Each structure stands twice: as C-alpha cells, then as structure tokens.
Amino acid sequence: MSTSAPARRRVLAQTAFEARAILRNGEQLLVTIVVPVLVLVGLTKATGITIDTDGMSRIDFFTPGVLALAIMTSSFTSQAIATAFDRRNGVLRLLSTTPLGRSGLLAGKVLGVLAVEVVQVAVIVTTALLLGWHPSSAGLLLAVVAVVLGTAAFTSLALLIAGTLRAEAVLAVANLLLLLLAVAGGVIVPADRLPGPMAHVALLLPSGALGHAMRETLWHGPLPVWSVVVLVGWTAALGWGASRLFRWH
C-alpha cells in the first residue's frame, strides 16, 4: 500500500512547480524581470526625465522603488493572473483534493513567489550595481524583511482577487491596479513627491508602505515602523478576506 509523501516534501515540490511555471512563461518573465530592469535603466539613463533626487545619483534614488515594483509584479500581478486561470481551468479544484491539500497548495504558491523574487532581486541588483548603485549596507537585511512583508500583503491581494473574480476580469483588474499603484501609489516616486492628498493616501496603501520601506532601508538603514504596521495590517485584512471569499472553482 503506497503512502503519500511528507507534507514538507509535497509543499516543496509544489513550490518548485510554481516557480518553474512563472520562469518558463515568456509573458510572466517579461512582466516580472524584463520590465523592471528596463524601467530601472530608463529612469537612470533618460535625460528627458527631471526629478529632484535630493543630491543622490539617479541609480541610488530609483533602485529601491524599482525593487518594490518588481515585488509587486511577481507577488500580485503574476500570481493573481496565474491563480485565476488555474481556478477557471479546474486545476485548483483538482489539486485541493490531492494529499497536497488547500493549505499546502497556497503555501506552495507563496513560496514559489519568494523563489521567483530571489531571481528578480538578483538580476535587478546586479544591473543596479553595474550602473553604480551604492545601497546602505546597514539596511540590506532589513530590506529583505520589507520584501517578505510586501510579498505577504500583495500575495494576499492576489489571492483575494483571483478567488472572487472571473479570470478575464482578473487579467484586466490586476494589470490596471498595478499601473495605478506604480504611478500614484508611492512606489517608483516617493509618496511625499505626489500632489495634494495623494501624498498622505499613498502611505496608507501597501504599495506606498513597501516603496517607503525599501527606500528607507536602502538609503538610510532603519526599517520604518509605520510601513511595517501598514503592510501587516493589509496582509491580515486581505488574508482574512481571501480565506472567507476564495472560490476554488
């Protein structure tokens, strides 16, 4: 009589599958890695873009925000679209009935996102260093904490959207929301540079909190407490919503 593999091995196998599925998909690879790198190079080298960098070089000013954008593309946009189409095609319902279970499936998806982010960060950081980036060494480990907190918040948002909307709607909503947050959510440009009340609203959004956390850690070192509070709060709220509203078919 055969027995199923231990839970840890099942989750790790699903993690590897999720990571490979993203990295082998040309469209996902474009969104998660190529676009952030092009944004970084464009913002650094484009002479037509005028912005006050507070005396910093362009590469030092923009790299933390581009890293935050990359985290959002993999943990939110990519994950929401992939999960929504897996749900439509019956893949989630099938996998949830296997020994992997629903909790194992979700754990595999989250860990798969983190694995992809390791590749993302490695590529972006290498590009930034080649362009002359000088991050604060004191904040490197805390930046990793910010990445994990941001991943948790945006993965929760991805699962909430993917589990409640039709796949075609998720495709439009995820891309539109990413664009809005990137432009006006305090990601690439610091929240205090946004016009009017948007500057205050952005810091309450997970995008603004992640962008602020990445900038503070990589510019100065400390991890801002307010960003941690906002990201944890969004993770708790969105995670609760996903657990209550997520439909497996």
Score class of each variant (00 low, 15 high):
48 G>T: 10
53 T>M: 01
56 M>S: 07
57 S>F: 05
57 S>M: 05
61 F>E: 02
62 F>E: 00
64 P>K: 03
65 G>L: 00
67 L>I: 02
67 L>Q: 00
68 A>G: 03
70 A>E: 03
72 M>Q: 11
73 T>W: 04
74 S>T: 08
77 T>Q: 09
78 S>N: 13
81 I>W: 11
83 T>Y: 12
86 D>G: 07
95 L>F: 10
97 T>G: 15
99 P>W: 13
101 G>T: 08
102 R>T: 10
103 S>I: 07
103 S>A: 12
104 G>P: 11
107 A>V: 06
108 G>C: 12
109 K>F: 08
109 K>M: 05
111 L>Q: 11
114 L>S: 03
119 V>Q: 08
119 V>C: 08
122 A>N: 03
122 A>I: 07
123 V>M: 10
124 I>A: 05
128 A>L: 06
130 L>P: 02
134 H>D: 00
134 H>T: 02
136 S>Q: 07
136 S>R: 08
138 A>Y: 02
138 A>K: 01
138 A>W: 04
142 L>P: 09
145 V>L: 08
145 V>Y: 02
149 L>M: 09
151 T>V: 03
152 A>M: 13
155 T>R: 15
156 S>F: 12
160 L>M: 08
166 R>F: 06
168 E>P: 05
169 A>F: 14
178 L>K: 13
179 L>P: 04
